[in-house]
């Protein structure tokens, strides 16, 4: 009986969003009378940072500072339609819709500015600080604040835009079954090192080294935050979490946080995160969906590390001490 060490590796290919009959999201953008911009969505921010990212995307497209954008995701009854925030689709689908809406709003904004400055709209550019300038003659300019006031009270224009992003449904080919479930894939690879006590079946994750390829990181700190938390969650899925440990038998399911286990702050593996950025062809500013993917590769990596350590394949999650001991017993019997 001994503590045995093992190392496992796993790599994954993760689709952004889903395709069960078309995958649409819509967005609306409009300016307030003082030149702030509202983004209206039904996509929900549940802590992953949707509002921040949509504000950045809108600001980048229109050419204003991010703090000039307010994102309203208040109400799925009244907002423009979104399939939902799941399958790591939020940034990709809603982001593309926001870009389209913001482009339309920007065009109206430039047309109003062009009337005020008596130039062609195509000769105008934004400085990213809230001003519109004549290309090559930046001394001739107008603030977006004044453009919005003019649009509202003088020109009778609505500085607004509509955005729609749809991944159309892909039907399988009858002969081969081939189809296109997604247009955009993120990737990850994890190496996990574990110790397995072959007497108790207990697994300790020593280190987790993750590389994530996520398209362009639109907000690198928030990406890092998501990946660090996700890596922890992957280990939690691999070793701890289940509502039905004896599925399909419903007995012994956890009923509270004393029984539904997750690693606490004292159980953390040494975690390393490396981000690779390969901008996607159809993502907003090159983004992909890193969301759920970040909690996936740790699971097979830990399972492989357990195999490397004690020579048993556990193919049911979570990899509990009981499952390891039963497998070791079966292995010894053979």
């Amino acid at each position: 009986m001994a503590i045995r060490r093992g190392r496992g590796v796993a790599a994954i290919n993760y689709p952004t969003g889903m395709n069960l009959g078309g995958d649409p999201t819509q967005a609306l953008v409009h300016s307030t009378p003082t030149g702030n911009f509202m983004v209206t969505l039904s996509s929900v921010d549940l802590g992953q940072g949707m509002k921040q990212i949509m504000a950045q995307i809108c600001a980048e497209t229109i050419g204003v500072p991010t703090d000039r954008v307010v994102v309203d995701t208040a109400d799925t009854d009244t907002g423009p339609h979104c399939m939902g925030t799941f399958a790591s689709r939020g940034t990709h689908r809603a982001g593309n819709a926001v870009i389209q809406a913001a482009r339309e709003a920007r065009q109206v904004m430039l047309e109003v500015a062009a009337e005020e400055l008596e130039v062609n709209a195509s000769d105008l550019e934004t400085d990213g600080q809230g001003n519109i300038l004549v290309k090559g003659a930046p001394q001739k300019s107008i603030s977006i604040f004044d453009v919005a006031l003019s649009a509202h009270f003088k020109r009778g224009r609505s500085i607004s835009g509509r955005g729609m992003f749809l991944i159309p449904r892909s039907y399988p080919e009858k002969e081969t079954g081939a189809m296109k479930p997604s247009t955009c894939y993120a990737h990850a690879c994890t190496v996990a090192e574990v110790e397995v006590d072959d007497e108790t079946g207990e697994v300790t994750v020593l280190t987790v080294k993750n590389v994530f390829e996520i398209g362009r990181a639109l907000n690198p700190k928030m990406v890092e935050q998501q990946l660090v938390g996700g890596s922890w969650m992957g280990i939690s899925h691999a070793l701890y979490e289940t509502t039905e440990p004896y599925y399909p038998n419903r007995d012994h399911g956890g009923t509270d946080f004393n029984q539904y286990l997750m690693p606490g702050p004292g159980d953390l593996a040494e975690t390393e995160i490396i981000v690779l950025e390969r901008p996607s062809a159809d993502g907003p500013y090159g983004a992909k969906g890193p969301g759920e993917m970040c909690a996936n590769p740790q699971i097979p990596a830990v399972a492989n590390a357990v195999f490397d350590a004690v020579g048993v394949r556990i193919d049911t999650l979570p990899i509990t001490p009981e499952r390891i001991l039963r497998a070791l017993k079966a292995q010894a019997a053979n």
Binding site: Q225, V228, G230, W232, M262, P265, G266, L268
Partner: peptide, 19 residues
């Protein structure tokens, strides 16, 4: 710090940023 936070559950962060 770990000991002090051990009675608090977090779902999102993986604890390290909190520590």
């Amino acid at each position: 710090v770990v000991e002090a936070l051990s009675g608090n559950i977090c779902r999102c962060t993986g604890y390290e940023p909190i520590i």
